[in-house]
Design a protein around this nucleic acid. Sequence first.
DNA 1: TTACTATATTCCTTGACAGGAATATTCCTC
DNA 2: GAGGAATATTCCTGTCAAGGAATATAGTAA
Lengths: 106, 106
Amino acid sequence: MNLVIFSALAEPSRFQIVELLRVRPRPVGELSETLHIRQPQVSKHLKVLADAGIVEMRPHANQRIYELSPKKFQEIDTWLNNYRKLWEERFDALDKVLEREKKKAG
Amino acid sequence: MNLVIFSALAEPSRFQIVELLRVRPRPVGELSETLHIRQPQVSKHLKVLADAGIVEMRPHANQRIYELSPKKFQEIDTWLNNYRKLWEERFDALDKVLEREKKKAG
DNA sequence: TTACTATATTCCTTGACAGGAATATTCCTC
DNA sequence: GAGGAATATTCCTGTCAAGGAATATAGTAA
């Protein structure tokens, strides 16, 4: 588990950016306006998110569109699997776990 | 989503502590020895984890046993639900989502 | 109470990181 | 190529958190 994703998400502005990108991909300027964060800060945050593998960029005309990359979220999900037994105590929960494993493998 | 859990997990020593506590509850001294981290640092990290709601403590004789609290992991899991559609693209994945919702409600 | 073990807290220093301001770069249009 | 819009980068500064060292506290046993 690469911890960079946690430190990236821990910063409030970056978390908001991620939540916005969950709805749809957006250019830098739109993130800046929506969140009332100056453009340079947004670009810096996006760099951190990109370095962490959380977002990807594609150019479109004059602007750069950022969107989420699923990989890191899958990574968190896989890691969380180890902890699910903490609260999934019913026996049939085992089926879930096995199903998840199968899904991962497939 | 409370971001404190992310910043708490982002610190490597604390993440290791959490991983050890996933196996079983442990006293401070054992964490210190196993991870080769001085006891005061371990206590500090445990305080951060406790404040974040990730661990709970119970006294046992002379020592204090720390163990994971499932709540925050469930919180992450619930939050991740919003992102699963990023990679669960097959139609039958919808069943999963509905099943999760039902489970949460129940 | 005294001695001992286990754990928590305080103080200090250092390094990392976020925001502000200014500037550089890239890309489109003309 | 020139001008302008969108975005990235650099430099600076203040804040915060982590580790080291020392010390305080709590709980146990005699």
